[in-house]
């Protein structure tokens, strides 16, 4: 880590300027949101239509709710909250939001994309 020279710390892009180093992490975090959204959608669809499509007489129940509803809506919501807490505390990173100087940016990259 320490033998890196300055020019390697901040990479230039195809336009020949140094790109804001925070954006890589920002883009990752955006993907977390999209992926979590898709997972919620899949659970919703599979549980809802998978368990709810049979005849109503044959439904099983969890805590009084039909199982399809309990899993697709209630358990799925609990999952969304747990996953959000996990992503926010473990995967998302603190960073300054104001424009950075070159020194601050280098510091930011050296710390592996964490705020000081």
């Amino acid at each position: 880590m320490t033998e890196r020279t300055e020019s390697q710390v901040l990479e230039t892009n195809e336009y020949g300027f140094v790109e804001d180093p925070r954006y890589k992490q920002c883009e990752k975090e955006a993907w977390y949101g999209i992926i979590l959204g898709i997972v919620n959608l899949v659970i919703w669809a599979v549980a809802g239509y998978g368990l709810g499509s049979g005849p109503v007489e044959e439904y099983s129940y969890i805590m009084g709710f039909p199982a399809w509803f309990f899993i697709s809506c209630i358990a799925n919501s609990v999952f969304a909250v747990v996953a959000t807490i996990y992503l926010v505390t473990r995967k998302m990173r603190d960073m300054p939001l104001d424009p950075m100087t070159k020194e601050e940016a280098e510091e930011f990259v050296r710390n592996g994309g964490k705020a000081r």
């Binding site: 804001d20 925070r22 954006y23 992490q25 920002c26 883009e27 975090e29 955006a30 977390y32 949101g33 999209i34 979590l36 959204g37 992503l87 960073m95 939001l97 424009p99």
Partner: peptide, 12 residues
């Protein structure tokens, strides 16, 4: 969703 996808980049 909105806060993660627009996220910090939008704020920056």
């Amino acid at each position: 969703y909105t806060l993660m996808v627009l996220g910090k980049k939008f704020a920056i």
